[in-house]
Design a binder for these strands. Structure first.
Length: 158
DNA sequence: GCCAACGTTGGC
DNA sequence: GCCAACGTTGGC
């Protein structure tokens, strides 16, 4: 049985909240706190072995900064049951959790950020969902050829 | 800090 | 099920 081909994703995080440096230090992280159904559904369709670009958002400049690998999927997001948590969801039931997440591991940081501005220069809106007007999704798929192109463009990891 | 573009909530 | 009001995201 041939192994399924990995898919590629883009995952946003505000560096003040959780940055590529944090992931580099920790090695792995649970991508919790997702409270948007579309983003959750994308995360649900991830497979172990998929790769994801780490995108720094709400900072200067915003852009792709590193690469991660999916190492586990379908994990219950523990933050939804903790009333002291920012991401507490009182409507989520223990027997039927509303929010789940993937576990990611650090693969590398690129030598320089590939900024949103450069992404706009290099790709079209229909090639990269990130570039579409009004896009606010924090997790989205990336077409394989675009993903490969981005990796080639950025070259070696730091 | 502004605000456009979304997503969610809840009254009806 | 509609939709106004509200909350959030995230670039600028």
């Amino acid at each position: 049985m041939a192994q399924q081909e990995p898919s590629y994703w883009l995952m946003k995080s505000e560096p003040n909240a959780y940055s590529i440096d944090d992931l580099k230090k920790e090695g792995t992280t649970l991508w919790d706190g997702i409270r948007n159904y579309q983003a959750r559904n994308f995360m649900r369709s991830m497979k172990i072995g998929d790769k994801a670009f780490f995108y720094h958002s709400n900072c200067k400049p915003p852009g792709i900064i590193g690469l991660m690998k999916v190492i586990d999927i379908g994990l219950v997001d523990p933050t939804q049951f903790n009333p002291n948590e920012k991401y507490y969801d009182p409507k989520s039931k223990q027997e039927n959790p509303r929010w789940d997440c993937a576990k990611m591991s650090y693969l590398g940081q690129f030598a320089q950020i590939l900024s949103l501005e450069e992404l706009r220069l290099n790709y079209k809106e229909n090639e990269l969902q990130l570039l579409r007007k009004g896009n606010r999704l924090s997790i989205m798929p990336i077409k394989k050829d675009i993903a490969i192109d981005i990796i080639n463009k950025l070259g070696d990891f730091q």
